[in-house]
Nucleic acid binder design. Structure first.
Lengths: 198, 198, 198, 198
DNA sequence: CATGAATGAGGCTTCATTCAT
DNA sequence: AATGAATGAAGCCTCATTCAT
């Protein structure tokens, strides 16, 4: 017979769930949340549409899970990068690390990043509280970083840090989602932010 | 018995067409192109869904008309602003005028701007050549402005001007669409671009 | 001003009505009564759909007028041909004249014939009494001709003449509508009916 | 708890599919392919319109399946009848068997036959290649039979066998579809074709 | 006479969802 | 854990028809 599974191995159900999340992320990245049909996701995951309901309560719950996972992973990458700095580190240094982390997230998360960062998807937040809260946390973290940099004189004070944050994140996302080379984008943004040299 | 209409008065059809475009812009701004149903547009325009076909060939044609008008108007505002400068004017001056024009477009065009600038809508471009071409023209104009600014030493050379362009436009759009005060956004962006003083 | 029209000249309305009938016949011949839309007919007649209602009470009335005209003309051709024979003429001679007249009708009436003779259109008869009655008259005339030929010993007696009539007309119609050369069809049918030589 | 189904029992899906085909045949026979609405078919099959799509890709595919099945069954009946003759059998004998087979098909296939044989339905062939090909095969088989009969001197030579075939099939169809007694129609056609006695 | 504009009904199709198996 | 089958709502579109102009 088959040998017993290792202790922490993902069960069959876990693996199917993962396939569904990946399939949904791919569809959402290509067609947007509204253009994504359960049938298309199921097909991509090699399942029938009805079977999705064994793993998720509804189409919206599946989509929300994808969006939330995207933001949560982005936050993890961001926090890891900032934590990895020799503490205590200066605001500009942290800001530069954040810029790079954000771009790395876009690169590494592929479909999940596309799904999360494209601004118009934010409208989905209305119906999806878990996703909305995760996004708020992510943005709050950035607001802090920006605010600190303003206090340190690296960024212009007297401006709502959220405006600056949107300017920075919006720029990074647009460039990243357009497929510009990450190194290019990073260098240009760091130059604009006056973070050129260590 | 009714007095004759003035020479250039819009006909009843013209007025209905305009109502439809505005209604569609509002819906698209709120739900995205894919989330916009013909019935919702018609309801907003106080028409029945079937009547839309008297004015547009299909839902897609209507949506494309909205997107295209948004970009076209944005381009007009941009070109007007740059042309209004005392010629010949320097690259930085032109860039600053463009930044302000773009923000003004976001403000003035309201729904149409939202519709046009939100990056993910770009996917709609696949099926909508007229919109796609208009968008290309708009982006090309910006690439030029950026490139000139690079040549003038205001922006970092050695970077693909399209990366810089996406950074700038992406930032402005995100900030503008998020409803940040335009003055704030303008000041912050000009500071980042080193355009602070004349 | 314009000179007064000649006494019996068709009025403008008459001419439009004729254009509509011809256009409808063409559409019906190509797509069948159910596949024929008012818009298509109007387009072919270079009118707008709404204008049709000035000339006909409804789409069904227009279609019925076409069908009826087709049968009426076929009957005229048939009666003319039989009347033209040197009276009194024998049954076989009359039958041969009828066969040739029917084929000539198919040829000359073109769209109108196609419209009339294709059996499945008979279902339209349910809603269209004028057409149904005209068709009955036509079929009755043929039943007589067949019956006379049976009495004259040219066709097998002891068979319901209507069965024979359907056999003959069905064959002629199928061959004619399939576009077989009329001479071929006529010769073959006359041979089957034993009408080869005078 | 329920006893296991017999080996070759049709599944629930098979039975629904059959109900749909029958319902569609009935509708087509009564209103023609163009007059047949999905809703009407679904109602007759005691299903909702949308459910049809679980079994067929589109309304056109369903209709084509009906037409094709009608011709295919007719061909089977024809081939069975001719094969059943003591081989080798003479051309006239085969032709007589074919005439009777064709009439039997009209009788047995009921709605399916009506659907298949009514000439104007041929226009449907444009969009329906499977049906078109089946029909061609059927007609080709008849052309052979006719041609052989010509060679054997039973039917007039010097005439395109396809004209003769249309004459014969058109006659049989018209008479069969009009509901004439099959025995009457068979006797009359055999008399016309000179096939009266063995 | 004819058009422009609108309507309401109906048609085809997609889709999220349910449920028995 | 997954499928087969069905549903009902909704979406897009066509069309006969009406009516003011």
């Amino acid at each position: 017979m088959s040998s017993p599974p290792p202790a922490n191995a993902p069960s069959k159900g876990d693996r199917t769930r993962r396939r569904l999340l990946d399939a949904a992320a791919a569809e959402i990245a290509r067609r947007g949340p509204d253009g994504t049909s359960l049938a298309a996701v199921a097909r991509r995951a090699e399942l029938k549409a009805g079977s999705v309901y064994f793993h998720f309560d509804s189409r919206d719950h599946l989509i929300e899970a994808v969006l939330e996972e995207g933001v949560r992973e982005s936050l993890r990458i961001l926090d890891d990068a900032v934590s990895a700095l020799a503490a205590p580190s200066a605001a500009p240094e942290r800001l530069r690390a954040a810029v790079r982390a954000h771009l790395r997230a876009i690169e590494e998360l592929s479909d999940y990043a596309m799904v999360v960062l494209a601004p118009p998807f934010h409208t989905a937040g209305d119906r999806m509280p878990v996703y909305r809260d995760a996004l708020r946390t992510y943005l709050a973290r950035w607001t802090e970083l920006i605010s600190d940099a303003q206090d340190a004189g690296v960024l212009p004070g007297g401006t709502d840090p959220r405006s600056l944050r949107d300017l920075v994140l919006g720029g990074l996302n647009a460039s990243g989602l357009a497929g510009r080379p990450v190194a290019d984008t990073a260098r240009a943004m760091e130059s604009l932010l006056g973070l050129d040299d260590g």
